[in-house]
Design a protein around this nucleic acid. Structure first.
Lengths: 168, 168
DNA sequence: TGAGAGATGATATAGTGTAACGTGGATGTC
DNA sequence: GACATCCACGTTACACTATATCATCTCTCA
């Protein structure tokens, strides 16, 4: 049902009913928060919903603007705090190379993540490739390095955008 | 002679004479620029030297401050332009997760890079692991994704810092 | 009912990065 | 030599990203 599978990264998922993605994400969030004794307040829920409006990474100040439109001009700390909470819950990830945020399609499962970021359409697809994890872990521990967090962001073109003529 | 080998990432390279790292980096830069018909101006040379003052990633505004101390208050665009040039030449890399820059130990060789970033001492070690490249490339192309740039930044503790007691 | 914890509001400011235009020096051409 | 051109650098102004700090509100629970 989820439009964003992790085993096989997808882009422009064929005419999918995106509302379903949003609802599924919110439902997962309810579960995750309940399990962890955290409160999914209206604000947090609303921000998560805004993050999930697309499969592109969203900037904090765009969220800010979207919130401002509706509930009396939110301020930066509000958004950043909310994003921090959502990240703690594993509900969103930060894409460092974009200074932006993306919803996590499987917050319920412990996983490492790698991101495919299309420079054409802007869509971001999360994957969790064991082969990459293994290579990274081997390389790190082989150097005596104690790995705590891996940032893997792969820029390029998704299949659809790569097929376009004027890619240059 | 280079204090920063790529095949085997290193940290706190045993009491090394760091001046040698700097000089080697500048010498490599001369070669790279000459080969590519680019001008390693005094400013560019000076910025590269400042980047190489340590094996930690350096922030743009720290460079700005260092330059300001000496040659009449440089302005942000000056530093960013210079860094962009150095990146184009492959002489420095940007570490996105730190908003900071690090000298490249082998600008003369085409290579992909992965970075080990120690949260203890702040040192950054570049490596170029074929196994990681392979895993990433396989995964990307397997999804029909046309990879153009990979960002791999691994945070953790270097062997020396991991061995300290209060790591927590 | 009152204390404490957690969530949000509000103000101010710090940190990061770029657009746009001006200046000056090197180089090549006539 | 005079001029055109390109490139590096200077300068101003501003946009974007993020956080510190303190105030307020609300829920829970003793």
């Amino acid at each position: 049902m989820s439009a964003q599978k992790v085993d096989r990264p997808t882009f422009h998922e064929g005419g999918h009913e995106h509302q379903g993605c949003i609802e599924a994400a919110l439902a997962r969030a309810e579960v995750v928060c309940r399990e962890r004794g955290a409160r999914l307040t209206p604000l947090r829920r609303r921000v998560l919903e805004l993050v999930w409006r697309s499969h592109r990474a969203v900037k904090a100040y765009d969220l800010l603007a979207a919130l401002g439109d509706e509930e009396g001009a939110a301020k930066p700390p509000t958004v950043y705090r909310t994003l921090e909470f959502l990240m703690d819950m594993g509900l969103v990830h930060r894409i460092d190379s974009l200074n932006a945020f993306i919803g996590c399609p499987q917050p319920d499962r412990r996983h490492s993540a790698q991101f495919l970021i299309c420079g054409g359409c802007g869509e971001v697809s999360e994957m969790s490739a064991a082969s990459i994890d293994r290579a990274v872990a081997d390389q790190a521990t082989g150097s005596g390095f104690a790995l705590s967090r891996q940032i893997i962001e792969l820029h390029g073109k998704c299949p659809q955008c790569a097929a376009l003529p004027q890619s240059s």
